[in-house]
Amino acid sequence: MNFAQVLVNSLITASELGIIAVGLTLTFSLLKFANFAHVETAVAGAYLAWTLNVRLGLNFAVSIAAAVLVMGLAGVVIDRLVFRIFRNADDVAPMIASLGLAIAIRYSMQAIFGPRFLRYDFGIAPGMRIVGAFVTRQQVWILGIVLLAIVGFHILLQYTTIGKAMRATSTNPELAQASGVNTEWVIAWVWFLGTAFAALGGALVAWDTQLVPELGFNLVIPVFCVVLIGGVGSVYGALLGALVVGLAVNFGVAVNFAPLANLIGGADWVSSLRIPADYKPAIVYLAVVLILLLRPSGFMRRELA
């Protein structure tokens, strides 16, 4: 096992899942429902960035920034049109609405962009070698952008008035309203940021890999697992959860468990014992089960803190 390489792979998986999961958990923390359309907005953001960059010839960075901004605003509009009417309902109605929305977005993407895979216009070449690991230029960028986004979000959440209002509203919406906080405005901000993060994550995944309409289908389970591990509604928990999932799936398939098995068995009865790669999704579930057994509500408390 090339430790450095597996670590790099884990970090990339973690950063891509993490940025999408942060957006999901953010909307959950305020609105207390699981938004299944979240990962589909990530895919929509990736398609939008692709359209701006490849079809309309805009600069790549500008395309990503514009897509993130537009999708953020789209998130606010979606809330007004779809989710606002459920504000005082239980959590099942908006969840079902989000499932419908997810299907609508996925099939719209498919209808507009076709079933074929798309790629941003960058050549593919071997990565740079950094301490024995191959790392591509875009992966370095992705790690940097995700780090920057997370730090920026942390600052916004901890030090700005709107960030404090988000945290206050997430813990005690009634008291926030009684304090004069315009919670609808705060919710609009949460949708903007949540969907913008989704779009950023989607664009980065597509940049690092490729863009197909089913991308959301393959992201939805890992992203929800990340959120579960971190503690539903906890932004910092989601980052931790992403790291756990990233490390678990990559080291899970890379590690040779034979020495461990021999230790337990007391003899050299096996030379190679690996988890087959087709069990990768199972590793994610296993991580969720183990962590929820140890900490039934995930790593962090379910509030924006």
């Binding site: 990339i12 490729q210 799936v249």
Partner: peptide, 8 residues
């Protein structure tokens, strides 16, 4: 359909 096959 997955997007990350690096380690395997």
């Amino acid at each position: 359909g997955a997007t990350d096959f690096r380690t395997e």
